[in-house]
Structure formats: structure tokens, C-alpha cells
């Protein structure tokens, strides 16, 4: 399959990329690793005139930690994140980064691309809701920082303005007593998840102080399941609370029948993955090491 013809521009800096995007206008698309964009180009699902390749812009692929603040450059690949010291100590990041698609896609795909695609099936947008992440953006009017909540506005639609690009992702490193897990089920390694659930719990003296529950591949956008969080916060975890949280997560979801499964199957899967993610998050919050990643047949 061949993409339709387009013009190609390689940007060497963020400013240059923004200038190119502004000059070209609405036919321009940004390419980072290309792992979401290339399949779209080959299927000719998008009518574009130009590609602005930001993949080689220096310094956008760094992971930095300053106190408990973490910043991940937009061009950091899934495989770099999986291999990082940060993922070694924040296991929910490792769950996600080491399980996205397969080895080949992880060596090209980037966290910024995953967020910018606005695809509810991408793993990072759902996961970043559990860390209250901020999206750093830069455009013709300068820089701004957006909350991940509401960043994906609709299917393939984000809060990015024309000619604006994501430069990085920021969040606070989860503290002591905090544990998270990202559980995704997919049909085979290269497939997008059928559904996925991310959970981050902070537990003090046996009580859940704060909870985040977010769903991927469960509707038109990534979904933060706030009622599920409310079922957990202030509670000590038992089968009853976990069951109610799972039910609330299902109620927050809006899956559809597609080739990955029926909506009913996906609802059952969301309940199951929510319970599992809460269980792993709870064990990790207590300091236990638990290995977890995407599962497939």
C-alpha cells in the first residue's frame, strides 16, 4: 500500500516545526515516530498535503526528574521509557511502556505521539489520567500547559490548537504508600487493547486516601471513572468496595461492538481488569514487587 503523495519537511527545532506548520496550514500533519500516522497514510484515511517530521528535534527525548517532579520529552519512545530508571521505580509506567504493541513498534512510537493522536485506544492517554499528568504544548502563541483531563476532546480530536505541538509530559512521582497498575487485554501483541484500565492508589493506614481509575479503549475518548474513584476513597479495600468500583468503572465506559469484541464482552473485561488493577496497585502500594503488563491470547 502506498500513501498518497505529500510534501515532506524535516524540522530541526520546535520553533522551526511550528513555523512550518503555520506556513502550510490545514493540510499539514506532525509526525514523530509515525507508528499511528503511517498506517493512516497507507489506508489513505486522512487527506493531508504535507508532513512535518519532528522526529529528530534534539532534546525532546529526555526523561528528567527534579525533586518529585517528572518530565518526559514528547519524543521519548516506549522502549526508552520501558528501559528507564524511572519506569523501574514507578511500575505503572513499566506496565504500559513494555506492553504497547510489540518490540518493533516500541522502538519507534513515542509518548507524545500517543497522546497527540487523540486515539482512545492508545495506552498513554488513559494511563496519564492516573498520574494527573500535564501536557506541555508549544505553538505560534508560545507555550502552555494543559491538564490531561479533557485533553482528548473527542475521537481523534485533542485540545491542541492549529500549529501547536506537544513538547513534553509532566507529573509528580507517586509518593510512599502509593501504588499503581495498568492492565490491558489485547487479541495479539501488535493489536490495540480490547480494553484497558489504569489504577493509582495512595493508601495510608489501610485506608485509600486517593484513587484514580482511568479506562482506555472503552469509548470515544480515554475515560476517567470518577465514581469508581469515589467508591474506593476513604475505604479500606475489600471485595465489596472493589466490586462496587468495578461496577462504577463499567458504568463510566461506553464501549461499542467491533472486531475486537462485543460491547458486552468489553464491559465484562473492564470489570475484570479494574479488579485486577486495584489488586496489583494495592500490593504495590504496600511495597510488594508485582510483574504486570499487557496480556494477550
Amino acid at each position: 500500500m502506498y500513501p498518497a503523495p505529500f510534501d515532506y519537511h524535516r524540522a530541526n527545532s520546535v520553533d522551526e516545526a511550528i513555523g512550518m506548520l503555520s506556513d502550510i496550514g490545514e493540510g499539514a500533519r506532525v509526525m514523530a515516530g509515525g507508528q499511528s500516522l503511517l498506517p493512516v497514510l497507507k489506508m489513505r484515511f486522512d487527506e493531508l498535503t504535507d508532513i512535518v517530521d519532528i522526529g529528530r528535534i534534539p532534546d525532546l527525548n529526555q526523561i528528567e526528574e527534579n525533586g518529585n517532579g517528572v518530565s518526559i520529552g514528547a519524543l521519548t519512545t516506549h522502549s526508552c521509557i520501558a528501559a528507564s530508571a524511572l519506569a523501574g521505580s514507578v511500575p505503572i509506567l513499566l506496565d504500559c511502556a513494555s506492553g504497547i504493541a510489540d518490540v518493533q513498534v516500541r522502538s519507534r512510537g513515542t509518548i507524545g505521539g500517543s497522546v497527540a493522536s487523540g486515539d482512545p485506544s492508545c495506552d498513554w492517554p488513559a494511563l496519564l489520567h492516573t498520574l494527573d499528568a500535564e501536557i506541555q504544548c508549544q505553538g505560534p502563541n508560545g507555550t502552555r500547559t494543559l491538564d490531561i483531563n479533557g485533553f482528548v476532546e473527542d475521537l481523534y480530536q485533542t485540545a491542541l490548537q492549529p500549529s501547536e505541538i506537544i513538547t513534553g509530559i509532566r507529573f509528580k512521582r507517586p509518593g510512599a504508600g502509593s501504588g499503581g497498575a495498568y492492565c490491558a487485554f489485547k487479541r495479539c501483541a501488535p493489536a490495540y487493547p480490547t480494553t484497558s484500565v489504569g489504577v493509582q492508589l495512595t493508601i495510608t493506614d489501610g485506608q485509600v486516601e486517593s484513587a484514580r481509575v482511568a479506562l482506555g479503549s472503552s469509548g470515544l475518548t480515554p475515560i476517567r471513572a470518577q465514581q469508581a474513584e469515589a467508591e474506593l476513597e476513604g475505604q479500606s479495600l475489600g471485595a465489596g468496595q472493589i466490586g462496587r468500583a468495578a461496577d462504577a468503572a463499567v458504568a463510566a465506559s461506553d464501549p461499542v461492538d467491533d472486531q475486537r469484541g462485543s460491547a458486552d464482552f468489553k464491559r465484562q473485561l473492564i470489570a475484570h481488569l479494574t479488579k485486577r488493577a486495584i489488586g496489583i496497585a494495592e500490593r504495590r502500594a504496600s511495597g510488594e514487587q508485582v510483574v504486570n503488563s499487557h496480556e494477550y491470547y
Binding site: 515532506y8 509515525g34 507508528q35 503511517l38 498506517p39 522526529g55 518493533q104 513498534v105 519507534r108
Partner: peptide, 13 residues
């Protein structure tokens, strides 16, 4: 040195 799917990359990349 890194594995990639060469059908999901442009030659210019």
C-alpha cells in the same frame, strides 16, 4: 541497531 517494521516507516525517516 533497533528493530523496526520497515513497512511502517518512510524511507526519508
Amino acid at each position: 541497531g533497533e528493530p523496526v517494521k520497515s513497512c511502517t516507516m518512510l524511507a526519508v525517516q
